[in-house]
Design a protein around this nucleic acid. Structure first.
Lengths: 124, 124
DNA sequence: CGGTATCCAATTGGATACTG
DNA sequence: CAGTATCCAATTGGATACCG
């Protein structure tokens, strides 16, 4: 009875609470292409530090967006992957990616670029 | 020649640079429903302060996403609206909104709610 | 009404060293 | 390999007072 109810002003704020912050969308974006290990993510996101990566992975795990898979091996092996629920973010993440591609092409023409073949371009 | 070129690792980072942060998506979301005045935005986003609102409005203006319309009246009247370019974010913002609505319904059932009739639900 | 300016608190981010 | 722990720097956010 009378459980505390949090009220958001718009649903956009809800989404931001889950994927807000500097790194979460980037991490999740990479995971939409499949399972990734700690070190893989560090290399895919060169400017992130181990501390920030771990911190955000834990928060995403707590939200039920991703899950850790721990293999009992030596040396240790851990993989991160989207949960079934986490996959519901794929469309949104890819839309963010496509908008960014458009923005670079249109506004930063020649003065900014996107590394490697991480462009979605015509992909779904 | 040899103008400095900024390299992003993924296009998602580009998008975050434009609409990242705690308030920008919320501000823009409200603007997708039409022009808004300073005071209107303050009431639509009760937890934002005047300082933060102004600061983010200026940044969005610099990016060419929104524009200020100053009416020469007494008392002063200023309105903010999306630029034609800014409208290209509408689909993304509304998708963020819809994901948030789904998340509240699915995960916070009963313990969180979205204020007023700001839900999109079946809207485009 | 629609802001600035200032100052201070809280949060976030990063470098480095160390652990199972 | 996959992290913790600690400490410090930078950025962000907020309260208050004031201005055109």
């Amino acid at each position: 009875m009378d459980q505390p109810v949090k009220v958001y002003n718009t649903a956009v704020e809800v989404t931001l609470e889950v994927i807000g912050g500097k790194w979460k969308p980037v991490i999740l974006f990479h995971l939409t292409f499949g399972k990734k290990r700690n070190n893989e993510l560090l290399h895919l996101i060169p400017s992130i530090t181990q501390k920030m990566l771990t911190q955000h992975l834990r928060e995403l795990e707590d939200e039920g967006i991703i899950q850790r898979i721990i293999y009992n091996e030596v040396p240790p092996k851990v993989e991160y992957e989207l949960t079934e629920y986490g996959w519901s973010m794929k469309e949104l993440l890819h839309m963010m990616c496509r908008w960014g591609e458009m923005h670079v092409d249109k506004k930063y023409q020649g003065t900014a670029a996107i590394r490697e073949n991480s462009r979605l371009e015509s992909a779904p």
